[in-house]
C-alpha cells in the first residue's frame, strides 16, 4: 500500500480580522483503499478540514498554512484548469444534506451526464451504462435517471449522491456526515451499502461523522478531532480495545451500550472552547477528569507511541506504567 493523501500542518481560519482558528496544524495521511473516520463533537472543524482537502473551502474560510498532496500532486498549487480536471476523478465528495446536493431543475441522469461529459467521457449509451452501474452499487433502479430530485425520498437522494461520487472511479471519496439527516433504518441500509462497496470498487474514504459508533463499524482507522486539532489517531481495532485520550474515552463512554441499549445516554459535560484565542494549554483541560497542573500551562503535542498517536501525556504515562489499560 502506498500513501494516497498526505496533509501536513494544515491550518484554516475563518475571517481575517479576529479569525476563528478552526483547524490548526493538522497532519493526516490516508493509504490507497483505506477507510478513515474523522470524528469529534459538532464545531470541532471536521467539515472545514474535509472541504479544504477537496479544495472546496469557501470564504470566509481560508487555508493559512500547510500542504496537501493527493496521489503525488500538489493540491495547493495547481492551475485552475488542471484542478478542474482533477476534481471528481481524484477526489469526490458526498455532502450531509443529500437532499440539497442535487440541482432541483436537472434530472438525475443529466447530473450524471454533465460530470462525465466534462471529464472526457463520450457517448450517451456508455455514459448511461456507467450511471446504471454505480446506481446498482447502491441498489437504486435505473429509472431514477429520468426523475427530478424532488420526486425522490431523502434516502434515495443520498444513495444517488453516493453513486454519483463513485462514477469517475475517484481515488478518494470524502463523505461529510452522509447519513446524519436520515432516519435510523435508512441510515443502517446506507451503512451496509458503504461496507459492501469496498469489495466492488477500489477507493479510499474519509468518513466524517460525530457518531463514533457508526464510524467504528465502517473504517479501518479513526482520527479524533477536538477544537480544531487532532487529539488521537489509531486503528479501529485498537480504539475498541483502548482509547487513550480522555476525550476519546468520553466519546466511547457516550456510545449506547449494546447490552443495555435503553440505558442512559451519557453526554460529555462542559462545552468546547472558543477558537478565537488559542491558549497555551491543553484544549480539553477545562473538561478533563484527569487534568493535572501541567495540562493548564503547556500545549501537549501529538506523539506516537505503540502505533497510537495521542495528545495526552497523562494517559500515555499510564500506559508506560502499565496501569489503566482496559480490556
Amino acid at each position: 500500500m502506498s500513501t494516497l493523501l498526505s496533509v501536513e500542518d494544515l491550518s484554516i481560519d475563518y475571517g481575517r480580522r479576529n479569525p476563528v482558528h478552526a483547524v490548526r496544524n493538522v497532519s493526516l495521511s490516508i493509504e490507497e483503499d483505506e477507510f478513515v473516520g474523522l470524528v469529534g463533537e459538532s464545531g470541532c472543524g471536521k467539515s472545514t478540514l474535509g472541504f479544504a482537502i477537496a479544495r472546496l473551502e469557501r470564504p470566509p474560510a481560508q487555508i493559512v498554512g500547510g500542504r496537501i498532496h493527493i496521489g503525488g500532486n500538489d493540491w495547493m498549487s495547481m492551475d485552475a484548469e488542471s484542478m478542474r480536471k482533477a476534481r471528481w476523478e481524484t477526489v469526490s465528495v458526498v455532502l450531509q444534506s443529500g437532499m440539497n446536493a442535487l440541482n432541483p431543475i436537472m434530472t438525475i441522469g443529466a447530473q450524471f451526464r454533465d460530470v462525465m461529459e466534462q471529464h472526457g467521457h463520450r457517448g450517451r449509451r456508455a455514459i448511461e451504462e456507467r450511471a446504471v452501474e454505480v446506481l446498482d452499487l447502491v441498489q437504486i433502479r435505473p429509472e431514477v435517471l429520468r426523475r427530478y430530485p424532488h420526486e425522490l425520498s431523502g434516502g434515495m437522494k443520498q444513495r444517488i449522491a453516493i453513486a454519483l461520487s463513485l462514477v469517475l472511479r475517484p481515488k478518494l471519496v470524502i463523505m461529510d456526515e452522509p447519513t446524519t439527516a436520515l432516519d435510523m433504518v435508512v441510515q443502517r441500509q446506507i451503512l451496509e451499502n458503504l461496507k459492501a462497496l469496498r469489495h466492488q470498487q477500489s477507493f479510499a474514504m474519509l468518513f466524517i461523522s460525530h457518531d463514533l459508533g457508526l464510524v467504528l463499524e465502517l473504517v479501518d482507522r479513526v482520527v479524533v478531532m477536538y477544537a480544531g486539532e487532532i487529539i488521537e489517531e489509531q486503528s479501529s481495532r485498537g480504539l475498541l480495545k483502548h482509547a487513550w485520550h480522555p476525550y476519546t474515552r468520553a466519546l466511547m463512554d457516550s456510545l449506547p451500550d449494546p447490552e443495555n441499549p435503553k440505558g442512559s445516554y451519557q453526554g460529555i459535560p462542559g462545552s468546547p472552547p472558543d477558537l478565537h484565542v488559542i491558549p497555551e494549554a491543553c484544549m480539553y483541560a477545562p473538561r478533563c477528569p484527569l487534568v493535572q497542573e501541567s495540562c493548564r500551562t503547556s500545549t501537549p503535542s501529538l506523539e506516537t507511541f505503540q502505533d497510537v498517536q495521542s495528545r495526552c501525556p497523562v494517559t500515555r504515562q499510564e500506559v508506560v506504567d502499565g496501569v489503566g489499560v482496559r480490556s
Binding site: A54, L56, R58, M83, R84, K85, A86, R87, W88, E89, V91, S92, V93, L95, A101, L102, N103, D114, V115, Q118, H119, A161
Partner: peptide, 8 residues
C-alpha cells in the same frame, strides 16, 4: 458546492 466539486 457539489457542482464545483464535480469539476464542471
Amino acid at each position: 458546492l457539489l457542482a464545483n466539486a464535480k469539476g464542471l
